[in-house]
Design a binder for these strands. Structure first.
Length: 578
RNA sequence: GCCUCCUUAGCUUAGUGGUAAAGCAGCGGUUUCGUAAACCGCGGACGCUAGUCCGAUUCUAGCAGGAGGCUCCA
């Protein structure tokens, strides 16, 4: 179902309402977007905020009554200049369209003339009744910081009231899954004003999840011959000058100067370090590929306004690896990486809802990239071959490549529908040349290795944020910071509860005892709210039978099991990752 | 960085130009309980810095922190 016409029509209605309420304001563009629309305005000195939205909505409803249809007309440049003389944004657009040889089209619903190529609904006053304005925002004209900041109003519109209500309910529900909210409630991470923004502190519970994720990815990649390495988190700025990162990321690097005047940077990526590791000695084709892997942090100066919870931070941790291989090995090596990604994400049922982007160079701006056209063609072709052999449906992202290599990026969505990059495979034919890396081939000649840069989680922090929202905090047993809680019905049974706890701990199940002086109901409630997978209640009966009353998360009914029986079931869950 | 909005206790919230209310959590008791909140009591906060004012948590400004957004092009 495509509601673009409806939503785009609604953006016109919004424009008319704002222009009526604030004479002298100008509307810029107002496209339909996923689930709604927006309209940009130059409001002059007027400030509008969310508090104004109800007033605008009311005005829209009034205006809508008079909108029976959209009248279309093609105009020539001269006419258009006259018609939109008052609006510099429309003038800029129409001059540009005319220059590009495009037709100039206008529409005129209820006497409101606008420049627009799109098609609209047939019966505005019948079809457009179910809308809601959602938020205001600042947005640069045409997205460029160099341009004026306009006021953007976001809204949504649906064919029926029910669909509108359902959508609004869905938005509310999504907010409850927000990882920042759950992170606090489940005590997974925190921020300190004194430590600084964009620098999350992980609690003992949050750290358990991180460790489990790291161990899991390690267990998947080990069979593929990865070797672990360790590098310092600083490097002389010369390293980044050589790699080319310096000119590209200079303003995003954290710099440190030593007493001796040598300039260091906190590493914003790991490739140059790993490359220097490879360069330490001669390599034979027999030793290829060399796969250096490491879970390590990088430091990036982001625009302060762009920091978001764990998804965008100053220090992020990558499960990074650089695989140095021969050109003949590169496609297969990339496919092996894909297998790890596939297995990893399948464990979380992430296969649905993830998109794969083939991130390519923008040929219009070849100056932004290392290497020549032929090299890029080759690496992009190889990347395409990987995607094809992996059976991946990809969409192309022109200009999304790294400055040194094309990528396959695996994208996920957060609770507000924002798209984020997680896993990545990058096939790099440039850095080896830049750093003069080589190996000796069968024929005794020196050749350039190919470098596969890859990450499975991408950023551990970002992956966690997506994961928290994916599970709404109810982690599968293997990830749950507390896997089981033992609740004695009263003090009398505390010794037995303690012995159960000991047995669980011996079996390496993360268990806690809650013998606080509170009624059982209250402690069950606590455990449910903490989303603990297993609640084990013990009383008279359990002491007699050496058993536990097991209540699985989400189930009302409990089931009595021998302690050993429960332990083997829980361990089976953990191994099966459910 | 820029635009708009927000900041009251550990958390969620109430409220005021005359220094503030509550629930949960915490602590101390009482209670000894069978699957989503037992009872009594006790501590604890107006983000920071200026300004206006007799007086600021409340108004203004700056700073810090947070939220949403910053091409899905007429």
């Amino acid at each position: 179902m495509n509601y673009d016409n409806l939503r785009h029509s609604c953006a016109h209605l919004l424009a008319k309402a704002v222009l009526d309420l604030w004479p002298g304001s100008h509307n810029a563009i107002g496209p339909a977007i996923e689930n709604g629309f927006y309209q940009d305005f130059d409001m002059g000195d007027v400030k509008i905020s969310e508090a104004d939205l109800p007033k605008i909505e009311k005005k829209m409803k009034d205006i809508l009554k008079g909108w029976t249809h959209f009248e279309y007309k093609e105009v020539n440049l001269q006419e258009a200049r006259k018609l939109f003389a008052h609006n510099p944004y429309k003038i800029e657009l129409l001059e540009e369209f005319a220059e590009g040889g495009k037709k100039l089209l206008t529409n005129n619903p209820g006497g409101f003339l606008d420049l627009c190529k799109m098609t609209h609904v047939e019966n505005p006053n019948k079809e457009m009744q179910h809308f809601k304005l959602l938020s205001t925002a600042g947005a640069y004209w045409r997205g460029s910081e160099k341009n004026k900041m306009l006021t953007r109003i976001y809204g949504t519109c649906w064919p029926t009231q029910k669909e509108l209500d359902d959508y609004l309910t869905m938005l509310e529900e999504s907010k409850k899954r927000d990882h920042r909210k759950l992170g606090k409630e489940l005590d997974l991470f925190t921020f300190s004003d004194l430590v600084g923004p964009g620098l999350p502190l992980f609690t003992p519970k949050g750290t358990i999840i991180r460790r489990e994720l790291e161990n899991f990815v390690q267990s998947l990649q080990e069979p593929f011959g990865y070797q672990r390495v360790m590098i310092p988190h600083l490097a002389k700025t010369e390293l980044y000058k050589k790699s080319g990162h310096w000119s590209k990321y200079k303003e995003n690097m954290f710099q440190v100067t030593s007493d001796e005047g040598v300039k260091f940077a906190m590493k914003p990526m790991n490739c140059p370090h790993h490359i220097e590791l490879f360069a330490r000695k001669q390599h034979s084709y027999r030793d290829m590929p060399q796969r250096y892997s490491e879970v390590t942090s990088v430091y990036r100066q982001e625009k302060t306004g762009e920091l978001i919870g764990l998804t965008r931070v100053y220090m992020l941790t990558q499960d990074d690896a650089h695989n140095f291989c021969t050109e003949e090995q590169a496609v297969q090596e990339s496919l092996n990486v894909y297998h790890i990604i596939k297995d990893f994400y399948a464990a979380f049922n992430f296969s649905v809802g993830m998109k794969v982007r083939l991130s390519l160079r923008d040929p219009q701006h070849s100056e932004k990239y290392l290497g020549d056209n032929a090299t890029w063609k080759k690496s992009e072709d190889m990347m395409r071959e990987v995607a094809k052999k992996a059976g991946l449906k990809v969409y192309e992202g022109i200009g999304e490549a790294a400055f040194y290599a094309p990528k396959l990026d695996f994208m996920a969505y957060d609770s507000l529908g924002r798209e984020w990059q997680l896993a990545t495979i990058q096939l790099d034919l440039n850095f080896a040349d830049r750093f003069d890396l080589k190996y000796t081939d069968k024929d005794g000649k020196e050749k350039r290795p190919v470098i596969i840069h890859r990450a499975i989680l991408g950023s551990v922090e970002r992956f966690m944020s997506i994961l928290i929202e994916h599970y709404a905090g109810a982690f599968p047993t293997w990830l749950a910071p507390v896997q089981a809680v033992v609740l004695p019905i009263s003090d009398k049974f505390a010794p037995y509860a303690l012995s159960v706890l000991e047995s669980l701990k011996e079996a390496c199940i993360r268990a806690e005892l809650n013998d606080k002086n509170e009624p059982l109901n209250a402690r069950v409630r606590d455990a449910e709210m903490q989303k603990i997978p297993y609640i084990l209640v013990v009383g008279d009966k359990e002491v007699r039978e050496k058993s536990v009353a097991v209540r699985k998360r989400g189930q009302k009914e409990s089931q009595t099991q021998k302690v050993e029986e429960f332990i083997s079931q829980a361990l089976a869950d953990i191994i099966a990752k459910v």
